[in-house]
């Protein structure tokens, strides 16, 4: 699995003031065209709300009524809990499987079948098993978040070059040392990519779980607003989710930079300077 996050090299002339101004101009034109299309009756405002109505909706949902906050909090809690539990489980299981060669061989067919199943499809079964509360949603998010870290960790551990393993062994490294100093670091970039994938799907998982059966959360709010054709408020929720998604995406990137610091030269230098300093301090104490 790979993650598809950046759009390749940025075209030349990236961030000058003129470019930003043009971006803004295009956005404003689009919004104005939308607004005019609604006012002229080309778009049915019942289904395609006015951009101005969406703006008003933001004010209403966040400030005057403030009713989005509890739902937002609940959804975030489900996403975080499910992500932490699911990815921890995935990584732990993959490490176990990766260390035992035979287990991996016999587990492979099941992993393929599970991979082909749309994870979210298990939703109704889990809701029937765990009830309508937040546990079932967390369980679904957990399941959604399990696979990407599992598969990537496994791939990363299997991908370690055999020469390096035999090198470690010939130097007399214990199994634990081989794991900690060789397998884990070389699998870490892939593990981090898996975590990013998992986090990206976690939000979707929580929402779908709330769509299926729930009484609180952003998914419920969107369903309610759409059901009563209050589309501007529904759009506020969706745009909130976009912002949330962007925030999550950025923070996962940051996490990747911290975990896999050695892919970036400056970061490597900084970390090794820090390590050197702490090592010197320790040696100084000894001496």
């Amino acid at each position: 699995m790979t993650d598809s996050s950046d759009l390749g090299p940025v075209p030349p002339g990236g961030r000058t003031r003129g470019v930003i101004a043009r971006h803004v101009a295009i956005l404003v034109t689009l919004l104005a065209a939308w607004e005019i299309a609604c006012r002229m009756g080309w778009l049915d405002p019942l289904f395609f709300p006015y951009p101005s109505a969406i703006l008003v909706g933001f004010w209403r949902l966040y400030v005057t009524q403030g009713n989005i906050w509890p739902h937002l909090g609940l959804t975030m809690a489900e996403v975080l809990a499910g992500f932490l539990a699911g990815s921890a489980l995935g990584i732990a299981l993959a490490v176990c499987v990766g260390l035992i060669d035979r287990l991996r061989r016999y587990l492979k067919p099941y992993v393929i079948v599970l991979e082909a199943t749309p994870r979210i499809a298990i939703g109704p079964v889990i809701i029937a098993a765990f009830g309508f509360g937040w546990t079932s949603k967390t369980a679904i998010v957990m399941l959604v978040c399990f696979f990407a870290p599992f598969v990537n960790t496994l791939n990363g551990m299997v991908g370690v070059e055999p020469e390096k393993v035999s090198m470690f062994r010939s130097m007399g490294a214990s199994k634990l040392q081989t794991f900690r100093k060789l397998m884990l670091p070389s699998a870490l970039p892939e593990i981090s990519a898996g975590l990013r994938l998992a986090m990206a799907s976690a939000l979707g998982g929580a929402l779908v779980a709330e769509f299926i059966a729930s009484n609180a959360g952003l998914g419920v709010l969107i369903t309610q607003y759409t059901g009563t054709l209050n589309m501007s408020s529904a759009f506020v929720c969706v745009l909130t989710l976009s912002a949330l998604g962007y925030f999550i995406f950025r923070s996962m990137e940051e996490l990747d930079r911290i975990l896999v610091f050695w892919t970036d030269r400056d970061r490597t230098a900084r970390v090794s300077r820090r390590r050197l300093a702490s090592w010197r301090a320790r040696m100084g104490d000894d001496a």
Binding site: I222, T223, M231, C237, L239, G245
Partner: peptide, 24 residues
């Protein structure tokens, strides 16, 4: 340059969140 911001916006929005709206 002018299309990619919208593509990114679409990417960070969980597409499944649009389900009720798409059905409407």
């Amino acid at each position: 340059r002018y299309v990619s911001p919208y593509a990114i916006l679409l990417n960070v929005t969980p597409g499944l969140a649009l389900t009720p709206i798409v059905i409407a």
